[in-house]
Write a protein that binds this DNA or RNA. Sequence first.
DNA 1: GAATAAGTGTAACAACTGTTACACTATGAA
DNA 2: TTCATAGTGTAACAGTTGTTACACTTATTC
Lengths: 221, 221
Amino acid sequence: MDTIDLTNCPICHGMPENSRKEFLEKLDYKLLHVEKGDIIARQGDLVNALYLLIRGSVKTEMVNESGQLIGIEHMKAPRPLAPAFLFAESNRFPVDVTALEPSVILLIPKEEVMKQLATNEYFMRGYLQFNSNRTQFLSDKLKLMSIKTIKGKLAYYLLTKTPKGEASFRSDLNQTELADFFAVARPSLARTLAELEEEKIIRYEKKRFDILNRNALQQLI
Amino acid sequence: MDTIDLTNCPICHGMPENSRKEFLEKLDYKLLHVEKGDIIARQGDLVNALYLLIRGSVKTEMVNESGQLIGIEHMKAPRPLAPAFLFAESNRFPVDVTALEPSVILLIPKEEVMKQLATNEYFMRGYLQFNSNRTQFLSDKLKLMSIKTIKGKLAYYLLTKTPKGEASFRSDLNQTELADFFAVARPSLARTLAELEEEKIIRYEKKRFDILNRNALQQLI
DNA sequence: GAATAAGTGTAACAACTGTTACACTATGAA
DNA sequence: TTCATAGTGTAACAGTTGTTACACTTATTC
């Protein structure tokens, strides 16, 4: 069995090198080694441990009683699997989890997680921070999705991304990625950008946005 | 000053009556009494305490430097305000928070929250459960919003709400509320329901759904 | 039971987005 | 430079949803 590296584990992120070592030594955990195609958890299984995927990748699928698929998602290490289901009222896996390649999962029993939370401040901070960040991410995403029109999404995006007083903004995403982020078709986004330029509300060129009429942007949300 | 009742506080939900009393006595907190129109927090303010709205109601608004509004939301007691911002990396209020009526907010400093988490198991469970439930709620909502068509939303809704093997489902929501839940216009939902009935995939009458062709539903997602 | 409100079925039309296709530009590798 | 690839601008058309309006049915209240 090989050594465990938690360097990139999102939860242990803030933990100093030496604490991390000590943490692992004292921790009550199990390692789950799986091969490609192995089932890690089944839809409906009780979640009674924290599942940390530390190597490999998995897919999740929702199936119904006739065995038909509803949705699929892929996940890569390192990341926790279903962290919100460990402490929630409905604490059962909502999906099947299957290994896509040889993978390693670190299993920490729920009681041990609670013990660590109570005794290890780094772990507590890391855990809380991870979950909080995730909530923020989901809230943001939801806010964006709840805006119906592409113009509205763009307006919201630009207004929240632009620091106060600044009139221009350089995006990390290219047009194609931005379309994915908004969950719209790429040509539709291009058309909308062209319209906003036509209306002299923004100028757009190569990931760079200039905001020409801030008030008009606000009217669009 | 009046007594504090945490009975309906979502975080203290699982705490037994006597523990709740003791909890409050030992707790380091401040009470914030505000009048209608008072500003409770400003966009950009550091979140360094847990804000529990225990009486009254507030609105949140996002404003920009020119003072124009972007979005508004109303919230009623009891509930925490921005609980995900206390431990997140970006720990500043994303919105202005203003009282809509005379209200009371219980403020627990971040360090005190951490202390309680480490020493009070009920509080820890309550806190984790609340945040986990919220994450689940947001994930569900997001999943639903990410399905583009109304038929798809309905199919997903029915398939997840229907217990295994059952062929009918009684909804808590009427058609109007369901349309809100899906974030679509009510007549659009009615049209979709009529289409699904026409295609003999479901039967619908007064909050009751009968699923006639489950496979067809799955194709719609 | 009558009156009022709430909820539902339906239709015509407008508005917006997705799809598909193609030309063009920028980028980077050989 | 040349070529391949990724990224972008644009257009026509189809498809879905929103809007508005109105008739009708079902609850609720007095």
